[in-house]
Simulated scan of single mutants.
Amino acid sequence: MIQINTNTACYSSTYINKSIIQSATIQKRDNFYCFPKHIHQNIEVYYFIEGFCKMDIAKETIVAEAGSLVMILPNTVHSFYLDSDVSCKFIHIHFEPSELNSLFIKENEIQIDILTLICSITNYYKLIPNEDIISLLYSILNEKNSTDLFSEIFCNLHLIEVLLYIVKRENITSFFLSPKSEITPRYVLFAFKYIQKNYAEKILISDIANHLNISSRYLSKLFNEATNLTVLQYLNIYRINQAINLMITTDNSLTDISLNVGLGDVQHFSKLFKNIIGINPRKYKKLLIKN
């Protein structure tokens, strides 16, 4: 495990007392409760105190039992339901990730945006937290319901601790910050940034590889090792996520949205959207309006 230098994990242009956590509550559900498939740009954290539930997350179904923590990432289709009359009690925290996108780890001259890294690898994380993290979650609850001047600050700092714990526990940085392969993370991180900057235009793997002066095949190998995705798969997921953002924040037609995210053919866009999200974009837009 790579040791993180605490002097290099910091805020940059984000007020430490800004309201980042939108809600933090203890909730209870029972009697075959069901919240249907939905999506949002926030990150949700669940810690299950009693009972269990099922969640459909993207194309996977998981069982979340007492003692487990589930973090669902932005733009991920998910649902929450009980398939029995047994009650389920849990801590539920909603927070706005964009306010923390200036939080970095730097090691071996490589700087990594923690949230971008977390959100690039998977749709959700499920783990068994230790007592320290459980204590932090309860502290967030207490501070969120307090009117003290420093409550928001403590909420944000506790949240950062929880995120860093997940980064450490899931060993996310082990590949990217490995001192034995400094060149590899540079290449993959460059690919992330290139896609994020140019996704609205036509992108070929060779475009990225040429900037790095390496072969497309070699870049594909490094990218797949780091993300378990091909460059094209990541590009498509990123484009669909941007399309969902436009569906949420604008009244643009699906044709315009398709063009704006680099998928000019609306039929191709619809097919790709359904393959990634599970339903076609027209039905999804209706779901957004309904929820």
Rank of each mutant, 00 (worst) to 15 (best):
N156W: 02
I195C: 11
E60G: 03
L100R: 12
I277A: 06
Y218A: 10
L159P: 05
D148Q: 13
Y218D: 12
S87I: 01
G51H: 10
I208S: 00
K197D: 04
T249F: 11
I203A: 13
N101Y: 06
E99V: 08
Y165G: 07
I133C: 09
E182L: 10
S79M: 07
N260L: 14
K285F: 00
H211Y: 03
A209M: 01
L73V: 01
K37P: 12
F192T: 12
A9W: 08
R29I: 09
S120M: 05
C119R: 14
I153M: 10
N101L: 00
S146Y: 03
K28S: 14
N42K: 13
S270L: 06
L287S: 13
K28R: 15
K202A: 06
D265Q: 05
H211L: 00
F192D: 12
Q22G: 15
K126Q: 15
P74Y: 12
F176R: 08
D265F: 02
N171M: 09
I133N: 06
S19V: 13
R29Y: 05
K193N: 13
N252H: 04
M71P: 01
K168A: 14
K54C: 08
V261T: 09
S12P: 07
I20H: 07
I240H: 01
H78V: 06
R169W: 02
F175M: 13
N198E: 02
L222M: 11
F52Y: 15
Y234I: 02
I166W: 01
N101R: 15
L163T: 07
L287N: 13
I93C: 10
I72L: 11
Y218H: 07
N228Y: 04
I214S: 07
S174Q: 12
L189W: 01
N252K: 15
Q3C: 07
N7Q: 15
D113H: 13
L212H: 04
S270V: 06
A226W: 00
S174F: 02
Q267K: 11
R29T: 09
V162K: 00
